[in-house]
């Protein structure tokens, strides 16, 4: 960004000086060979010079007022300086911070697991089951999860494979692998976006703000203390993942992916660069956050995976982790947040 700004300023300044210099010359001076002293001055300033290509290239670099007779390439400028910015972003922050975000999250979870261990149920299981996720909800979740994992792995192969895999398996094998990864990525991508949309439609209702969420924030979800903080169907942690992960990152990565995937709708290179930066940057964050989600949904918490696998959870689990949801399902009224009309249906047997 800074580089770009600096180069903008530089170009701007050069253009300004050039205009002034041209204005200062007597009319017609550009055609006739200029007197020696004028030429020398102009050379000193690196400006108006007959037969100096540098001027033409500098003009070209500004990217304005250019045309091309053969219309094959999608953009008509001679030099697109934005490419360099994109290169710096991709090979710099996106690769490095993105990579570190994933590594740090992974290590953080390993440490967390070592310290906290699995969050177990405090009471015995009752053996009575409650429906937590309907079939269509599980379908949406698992198709999102499946496509996410495939896209994540193939995406990582394309961003980091050059450093991780290529030295191990060599150019030829990695070439085939990357080719497969790219095609899988391109064909699975749209499916991912469909799953995201389905998820949003199905889950948005239970992910709106509810008064009890304030308590969850105050107690940091009881993650460290081990305390059970009551919540409705989804607690604030799950809601954060829904809004930040599924809705924001999911839609952003999904739509920018479409822009990259179908390049035939008049996108310029600059559109592609922007889309790619949002896509890969967002994806890095998405992958890092998803590790935490996967952790808490599998080894991190007893009974969590069951719910998404079978659709049913034990009543004890429901009471301990989503107390208000449990009580609502049993027909109780929650004083500070009366159930909305029709809400009970989702939890009924």
């Amino acid at each position: 960004m800074k580089r770009q700004l600096v180069s903008c300023l530089r170009h701007g300044a050069a253009a300004l000086v050039a205009t002034l210099a041209i204005a200062a010359l007597p009319a017609g001076a550009a055609d006739a060979p200029p007197p020696a002293n004028v030429a020398a001055e102009a050379i000193g300033a690196g400006l108006v010079q007959p037969g100096n290509n540098a001027n033409a290239f500098r003009e070209a670099r500004r990217g304005e007022d250019q045309s091309i007779t053969f219309a094959a390439p999608p953009d008509r400028v001679l030099i697109q300086s934005q490419g360099e910015t994109w290169r710096q972003m991709r090979n710099g922050p996106i690769t490095q911070y993105g990579g570190w975000a994933i590594v740090v999250m992974f290590l953080g979870l390993v440490v967390f697991y070592a310290v906290r261990g699995e969050i177990k149920l405090t009471d015995k299981r009752t053996g009575k089951l409650m429906e937590r996720f309907k079939f269509i909800e599980r379908l949406a979740h698992w198709s999102l999860a499946g496509t996410f994992v495939i896209l994540g792995l193939t995406g990582i192969a394309m961003l980091f494979g050059k450093h991780l895999l290529l030295p191990l398996i060599g150019h030829t094998a990695f070439g085939y692998l990357a080719w497969a990864a790219k095609n899988v990525h391109n064909f699975i991508g749209p499916l991912f976006l469909v799953s995201v949309l389905l998820m949003v439609v199905l889950f948005v209702r239970d992910n709106v703000w509810q008064a009890i969420d304030a308590l969850w924030i105050r107690k940091a979800g009881g993650l460290l203390s081990g305390e059970h903080v009551p919540s409705h169907r989804f607690n604030f942690g799950e809601k954060t993942w829904f809004w930040l992960g599924v809705v924001f990152l999911g839609l952003m990565v999904g739509t920018t992916g479409l822009i990259l995937d179908f390049p035939l709708y008049g996108q310029t290179r600059q559109d592609m660069q922007l889309a790619h930066m949002l896509h890969s940057g967002g994806a890095m964050l998405f992958i890092a956050l998803s590790l935490a989600h996967i952790y808490i949904g599998t080894v991190g918490m007893e009974g969590a995976l069951e719910g998404m696998k079978t659709g049913y959870v034990d009543e004890t689990w429901a009471r301990e982790h989503h107390e208000y949801w449990y009580r609502e399902a049993r027909g109780e009224r929650i004083p500070d947040n009366a159930p909305r009309p029709g809400h009970k249906a989702s939890a009924a047997h």
Binding site: T95, F160, L164
Partner: peptide
């Protein structure tokens, strides 16, 4: 396994000229 995986992942985060 996780340690090795982490080590492999670390390798990608070095700032090397490409």
């Amino acid at each position: 396994v996780p340690l090795l995986a982490a080590a492999a992942l670390f390798a990608g985060c070095g700032e090397e000229p490409q």
